[in-house]
């Protein structure tokens, strides 16, 4: 045993020495990396660490942080009813729009890929435009306006289905569904682009080979040839759509207001904003941020391990 340990230490030491030597040779590499690494560490890594640290304290910016242990988490889950509503809303949005948006992105990218070249480039613009159109989603508030001048209300009233206009963004019954529609509309984002590009990169001779080997229709082709080839892009798309699905707040805040009626459209991020930038309870807000962070990372890992089995 001691022999083994000695060897182990020896190997480790050797590796370390080799590492140091390599690092010394590649000094210029570190120089190139340095600007990015410094900024990245400062604004992406440190915040996560700080956030986890503050989540165990009571901190309101004015006073020095006071250590309170797990108190923040306990009150989040046991005392804060609104947080539970926000978790429920976020998960409802994420579970419905995440997978649907993801599958939709792939489906449309795959269908677009069948089109002739110039039609395809027009189609990509049309499908991708909503997600880069800034806050164009605000237009839905005109479309679903709560008075009779809104298109949906006018249509329903003309058709005789309702007598009085529905207050779409004030009635808790309608808020979430409409937000989900809007989020779905915007969900063909970076993942979609990645799929479109990836599909064009699939080696065409594989399709011919598949045809020779007796693949009968486009669905078989999709499962046996396209999907295995697309796995890296599928991973990338999944990361994008999960991040988007759990980070919903812009749409709900713009359409349903902040705060929304009965907190019916409150998401985790909205709750975070409320405590962080309105009440300045930074410790509490940081514990919300930490929970959101854990949810996102865990979901990503789970989906990745699931996706690695697709199409084989």
């Amino acid at each position: 045993m001691s022999q083994f340990l000695k060897d182990y230490v020896k190997v480790k030491k050797h590796n370390f020495r080799v590492g140091v030597k390599k690092a010394r040779i590649s000094k210029s590499c570190y120089l190139f990396l340095a600007p990015y690494a410094i900024i990245f560490t400062m604004f992406f890594v440190m915040p996560v660490v700080i956030s986890i640290f503050f989540s165990f304290t009571y901190y309101n910016i004015l006073e020095a942080p006071r250590f309170v242990g797990l108190q923040n988490y306990i009150s989040l889950f046991l005392e804060d009813d609104i947080f539970l509503i926000s978790i429920k809303n976020t998960f409802m949005i994420a579970i419905l729009t995440g997978p649907l948006g993801y599958i939709g992105s792939f489906l449309f990218a795959w269908l677009i890929n069948e089109l002739p070249r110039w039609v395809r480039s027009v189609a990509v613009v049309v499908f991708y435009a909503p997600s880069i159109a800034g806050n164009c989603y605000v237009i839905f508030s005109v479309f679903f306006r709560g008075d009779a001048y809104g298109h949906v209300n006018a249509f329903l009233m003309n058709a005789g289905i309702i007598d009085t206009p529905i207050l779409f963004f004030t009635n808790p019954q309608y808020m979430l569904p409409i937000c989900m529609v809007v989020i779905l509309w915007m969900s063909l984002g970076a993942g979609f682009l990645s799929f479109v590009a990836g599909l064009q990169g699939v080696d065409k001779s594989q399709y011919e080979a598949g045809y020779m080997d007796g693949i009968k229709n486009r669905w078989q082709e999709l499962w046996f040839i396209t999907l295995p080839n697309m796995k890296p892009m599928l991973m990338f798309g999944a990361v994008m759509s999960i991040t988007q699905a759990f980070g919903v707040c812009d749409v709900t805040m713009a359409l349903c207001g902040y705060p929304s009626t009965d907190y019916a459209a409150r998401t985790i991020v909205t709750h975070l904003f409320d405590y962080g930038f309105s009440r300045f309870e930074m410790g509490y807000a940081c514990s919300i941020a930490t929970i959101l962070f854990l949810i996102m990372i865990l979901c990503n890992k789970a989906i990745q391990s699931f996706l690695s089995r697709v199409g084989t």
Binding site: M46, P47, Q244, F273, C286, I297
Partner: peptide
């Protein structure tokens, strides 16, 4: 890439 900027907003 797996978490949104909102997580790091406060820190």
């Amino acid at each position: 890439m797996m978490f949104t900027g909102y997580v790091t907003g406060i820190p």
